[in-house]
């Protein structure tokens, strides 16, 4: 008993202070993957049954809606292509590196951390698909979080709303740089250290600023929903609601930023 207790304590310290057990953990995740998959099967069945019982008219209506959306998105993409080209030309004139297109990999959610205090999810792509620790994760609406642990077939993603997670952001309108920290509630982010006189309003869009070299620049993070300045406090109380549907999405995008990949390959910094 005492021996095992000491082994536990030693393991925990090593695990917490160093990364030397990561390989062992990643092998072990393969063993527990079946448990995760079985645990997720009720969810899967519910959505499967829902698709089965959808009527023909509902389906064709959905197809119509999706086709319309596709058309709109295509139109936007066409515009994007020319804008990207123009942007790269201008950047070349300024002598700075052109922004490459980000490659993405689609992954599906297969598990949610049962502890409500922790905002972590499991996805069905792992190191076999070149997923790496620190990789940014998006959904269709915005930034979701980052990969914190990879196994061969699964990875664990820390969401923006986790109290231990922070992301450097920028107000799209005024370019004000801020830090958005998770609040522990899945639909709220706290903005840290906002000056009382800062140019920020309710409704402002926050995008990732790319500082810290972890998240790519310019993805939507959230929309400011409260700005309160209490003269008794040194900083304004500002919160935002995340753009990504942190607690509802089942499909996520893993971003492979070419710069980051190249940077890690050459074992140097990208800038």
């Amino acid at each position: 008993m005492l021996g095992l207790a000491i082994v536990s304590l030693a393991l925990m310290s090593v695990d917490h202070l160093t990364g030397s057990l990561d390989n062992f953990r990643s092998i072990m995740t393969v063993l527990v993957t079946p448990v995760v998959v079985v645990a997720d099967s009720p969810q899967r069945t519910i959505s499967g049954v829902r698709e089965l019982v959808a009527t023909r008219s509902e389906m064709s209506q959905q197809v119509d809606e999706l086709e319309n959306e596709l058309l709109l998105l295509k139109a936007k993409t066409e515009k994007m292509a020319s804008l990207t080209a123009e942007n790269n030309r201008l950047r070349a004139l300024l002598g700075s590196a052109g922004k490459l297109e980000d490659n993405v990999l689609v992954a599906e959610l297969i598990g949610v951390d049962p502890d409500p205090e922790r905002h972590e999810v499991l996805i069905d792509k792992g190191s076999r698909e070149q997923v790496f620790v620190g990789q940014p994760v998006l959904d269709a609406a915005g930034l979701m979080g980052q990969v914190i642990e990879t196994g061969p077939f699964t990875s664990r993603v820390l969401l923006l709303s986790d109290p231990t997670h922070s992301v450097p952001v920028q107000v799209a309108r005024s370019n004000l740089r801020l830090i958005a920290q998770g609040s522990g509630a899945s639909r709220q982010l706290d903005l840290m250290h906002v000056q009382g006189t800062a140019d920020i309003r309710v409704g402002d869009l926050l995008v990732s600023s790319g500082l810290g070299d972890r998240f790519p620049v310019g993805y939507p993070v959230g929309v400011v929903n409260k700005v309160e300045h209490d003269p008794g406090k040194p900083f304004a109380d500002v919160t935002a609601s995340p753009s990504a549907l942190l607690d509802r999405t089942r499909h996520v995008l893993l971003v492979f930023n070419d710069e980051q990949v190249r940077g890690s390959e050459s074992d140097g910094r990208s800038r």
Binding site: M1, S8, M12, V36, D115, E120, I148, E149, R156
Partner: peptide, 21 residues
């Protein structure tokens, strides 16, 4: 079993082990 739970829940290795012993 605690060790397996740690991997399953992504906690520190040994945490559930200690609780379960």
């Amino acid at each position: 079993i605690g060790l397996i739970m740690d991997v399953l829940l992504g906690d520190l290795l040994g945490q559930h082990g200690l609780a379960y012993i």
